[in-house]
Amino acid sequence: MTDRLTSLREAIEAVLPNVDGVLALRIGPGGISASHLFSKEHPEDLAKLALWPKEPVPDTLKIILRAHPDAKLAIVCRGCEERGIVEMFKHAQLNLDNVTLIGLQCEQAEAEFCRCAKPFTVHSKTTVGQSIKGVPDPVTEKIAAMSQPERLAFWKQEFEHCIKCYGCRTICPQCFCNVCTLEDEKWVETGRLPMANPSMYHLIRAMHMTAKCVACRECEETCPADIPLAVQFRLMARDVKELFNYEAGAVMDQKPPQLLVLEEGDYERSGLPH
């Protein structure tokens, strides 16, 4: 059996002649991977094709497409990245007419690292690797199981560590706004560290990620304070699924439910008074 890297290389080679470039990861100095546009002009680059550590490729795709709207591109994406691309498409941030998705299925160790419930692609026509089942997220479960005062104390302590670098917002593939509510004095107090409890920054960001977060965990990875940021997003995503039967990145032409009218049964599940 060929390994994933070889299979991926073959898959890229197969599409290369038909596109202007294939966006994937390339290994750089010090074992750091970064997005790279592989092209037929430089087939030798493929020797440096990499799989891991993952990098947020959807954002790079957006940047390239902004500059070259007519480019024909392919992109190698994992499950979370594919979901990210779908969400960006749904929010009119990407035009996918000329984009081919090459799905890369994650391996057990990778999925466990990300505590990922869906380590596989669903939209990509070409896929590489064996798709595996989701794995549990013990961090989220642990926090969800806390009592209310425990949770309050836990988050207070975590958010006190936040240095407001805005890194989590910046790396998030779903944070593509031109102006950011988190930078608006009206909503988030500036010039105060540690920030006041409860953290408006994190509450508002969690609200904004509701029905939008694709569970790529880039924010957690980037956070210099090591705050388990994805936990709240994941809990919210669970509610959105339970209440409104919606999952970010799952269906191409579905709008976030909180924008739309109530469907049969939504109200009953919402827990609001009758």
Partner: peptide, 15 residues
């Protein structure tokens, strides 16, 4: 009816 229950959930998750 959709936003506010979600916000309530978030408050809960924040303790």
């Amino acid at each position: 009816a959709k936003r506010m229950p979600l916000l309530k959930k978030l408050l809960e998750y924040t303790g």
